[in-house]
């Protein structure tokens, strides 16, 4: 059975894939899907409750909330993908190298990683953004850094046992360089683990971005971000609850979707679980 069909043989896999697909499609095709321009203010239309022309209502500036949710998917997907790639590639490779090379470098770098891990990650991200300023690039860095230690540890712990394998020792004995061994023997073995970890961290990254934006330190207006919409909607909770409900729902649905998909993928990819089933 191929991995794809295994995922689809499972109800939570189907739901997860569907939700994630909806998320990705609306993010990529936002201009086609969104009924209105998400940035256009129309003051006459302000604070409309959900109706046939504005499915999720309008905010205080008369902007269509549904369109803003669609465009918000774009921002959240972009930020989550880039920051996860950054931390997975950087962290995974660093971990693999440290695991293989070992010695003093390993000792020193891992202590840094421990320090980084002991920091509450949201506080770390907040400090970084406050320090660097809230541009998109800095937000990516601020999300990537707190996530990197997990990947470093994962890469390292996967590399250590492989180092002792016969084929690895054989390559070394026949004079292969360290980069060659890491590239041909270590990384291919580390990769599947990193992929699963990336899916699992992905939903956290989305929540991270939303939290930063909610606190006003993430994505800056006029760009639409779910967290920022939620933050702005908070003060309208009693007057116009739909402003906060829509982005809140969007965040939860996407996070549930990704988590379901991630769980299914782990079940499918993990050889131990495979044997027992």
């Amino acid at each position: 059975m191929s991995i794809i069909s295994k995922i689809f043989s499972n109800i939570s896999g189907i739901v997860g894939v569907t939700l994630v697909l909806i998320y990705i499609i609306s993010a990529i095709a936002a201009p086609l899907v969104a009924p209105y321009n998400p940035y256009e203010m129309n003051h006459i239309n302000s604070l409309r409750s959900p109706n046939s022309s504005n499915w999720a209502g309008t905010d205080q500036f008369g902007r269509d909330i549904f369109s803003r949710i669609i465009y918000g998917a774009r921002i959240s997907l972009f930020l989550a993908v880039t920051s996860m790639l950054l931390s997975a590639v950087f962290g995974g490779v660093l971990g693999a190298v440290l695991g293989y090379v070992g010695g003093k470098a390993d000792l020193i770098v891992m202590r840094f990683v421990d320090i980084l891990m002991s920091f509450p990650s949201l506080i770390l991200a907040l400090t970084l953004v406050a320090f660097l300023g809230a541009s998109l690039q800095n937000i990516i860095i601020a999300i990537a850094i707190p996530f990197t230690p997990v990947f470093v540890r994962m890469g390292r712990s996967a590399a250590i046992p492989i180092k002792e394998e016969e084929y690895c020792k054989a390559s070394k004995a026949s004079g292969a360089s360290i980069p060659w061994i890491i590239y041909h023997h270590i990384l291919p073995n580390v990769f599947p683990l990193l992929l699963t970890q990336t899916t699992l961290s992905f939903s956290k990254a989305i929540i991270f971005e939303s939290s930063l934006s909610f606190l006003g330190l993430g994505v800056q207006p006029p760009l639409a971000s779910w967290g920022q919409m939620l933050g702005a909607g908070r003060q309208f909770m009693t007057l116009a609850p739909w402003i906060a409900i829509a982005p809140g729902l969007a965040i939860s649905i996407v996070v549930i979707g990704i988590n379901l998909l991630g769980d299914t993928m782990r079940d499918v990819a993990d050889p131990h679980l495979q044997n027992t089933s």
Partner: peptide
Amino acid sequence: SGYEEVLSQVQVLQNQLEKVNINLELNSLE
């Protein structure tokens, strides 16, 4: 940062100035 009514005013301002080709960059500061 942290004052909703200020953020709202700045957004409207950005929107209004856009109409005369003035691009307003928002600097939300602690």
